[in-house]
Simulated scan of single mutants.
Amino acid sequence: MDPIIQIDNLFIEENTVFTELIEVIKKNFAENKLMVPKRHHHDFPNPKMNSDSTLLLMPAWNPSETAGVKIITVSPENSQFDLPSIQGTYIYLDATKGTIKAIIEAKSLTAKRTAAASALASSYLSRKDASSLLMIGTGALSINLIKAHASVRKLKKVFVWGRNYNKALAICKQLENEDFTITPIKTIEEKIGDVDIISSATLSKTPLILGKHLRKGQHVDLVGAYKKDMREADDETISKSNVYVDTYDGLNESGDIAIPLKTGVLREEEIKANLFELTSGKKGGRMDTDELTVFKSVGHALEDLAAANYYFEKYISSNK
């Protein structure tokens, strides 16, 4: 049996080209050849932290070719240990023989594929002339989201807000040599109404994006709030926007969609499209410059397997 390849975070960080990864994920959504069962979502007690943790199992298959399953834990209080909230691994398989081809560090893989999916959605939903972005959140996803969005829209100005201002400063320092200016801010309100794109990746249980601050033509990218009791955007944001999602399978997993659906603020049939429909051309994206769009990402195992294929092929090519 061939040895099992180990692909670590460093390799993923050094070998990601967002334009390539976005195209790979776009192709997989458009072709829709992968078999993806509904993911397992299990909340379990974490009494030492006085907060539940979550275990996610996300399998996918390309019959007789490749397969894989991502095993992820989400521990919201990990900042106390100076660790990202998301931890995990990806088991990459030969779908014909069932053998393990690679073990891929899932922390970076998840961050990269999530950011790429958001940027893919933005390519359909944000204005083509969008040039400014507000990043809400300073976790592991934030830098990836900024870079991914900048790969599909020519950003000139980026602003970063986090509950810890020093973390926002640190992100700006890391990205100070990019082609855009990047500035930390102390309140969301000071910039939310001025930017073209708002990307949010937090574990907030109360809305941070308030519809009263939004204007026509903006695009809102909701990436965090992965549980039913979490929300990044309020009812007014949802009610005044055209809503798009990555997949219809996860509508009841995040409070950003589940709560408005439950209260009648949003009806399922009002959701405009998912990434399968956008990438295949079955449905269109932004209709005009005044449209206010919201994209809610809950994550899809198709993205994981597509990214695993991408990094495995890069690893093999670099080691020939």
Rank of each mutant, 00 (worst) to 15 (best):
N32T: 04
T279C: 12
I103Q: 05
A307N: 02
T202F: 10
K205W: 12
L278M: 03
I259Y: 13
K167F: 11
T110V: 05
P3W: 06
Y248V: 07
E270R: 10
Q80I: 13
H42T: 11
K227R: 15
N50I: 08
A67T: 06
N274A: 07
P45C: 10
L222Q: 00
V245D: 01
A258V: 02
I12L: 07
K154H: 15
I209D: 00
H219M: 06
F276P: 01
P207W: 10
A301E: 04
D246C: 12
D304R: 05
I25F: 02
K107A: 06
S318V: 02
D82H: 11
L133H: 06
M1Y: 09
I5A: 03
P37I: 10
K283G: 08
N28S: 15
L109R: 07
L305I: 01
V245Y: 00
Y248A: 08
K296W: 15
E105G: 05
I259E: 09
G162H: 07
Y92C: 00
L266I: 04
I182F: 01
R215K: 14
E232H: 13
T181W: 03
L120M: 05
I257Y: 02
S204L: 14
I188L: 06
A140Y: 10
P37G: 11
N9Y: 01
G162W: 03
Q80V: 12
N309S: 07
D256W: 04
P3G: 05
S254C: 12
R231V: 06
E236F: 13
N50V: 05
K38E: 15
D304I: 08
T183R: 11
M135H: 02
G264N: 06
N32A: 07
T289R: 15
M49V: 09
E189H: 12
N309M: 02
T206G: 09
M35N: 15
E65Q: 15
A116D: 05
T247R: 03
Q174W: 08
S297M: 10
R153V: 08
L57M: 14
I271C: 09
S108F: 12
L141C: 06
S151V: 02
A106M: 04
L275D: 03
K156H: 11
N309L: 01
F312A: 01
N177I: 11
E23Y: 07
E253I: 15
M49C: 11
D221P: 12
E23D: 15
T279R: 04
V265H: 05
Y315G: 00
T289D: 13
N309K: 01
Y92P: 00
L208N: 03
G284L: 14
L109P: 01
E65I: 10
A121S: 14
P47M: 10
K128Y: 13
A119W: 00
N46R: 15
S64W: 11
S297K: 06
P260Y: 07
H40Q: 11
L203F: 14
T263S: 13
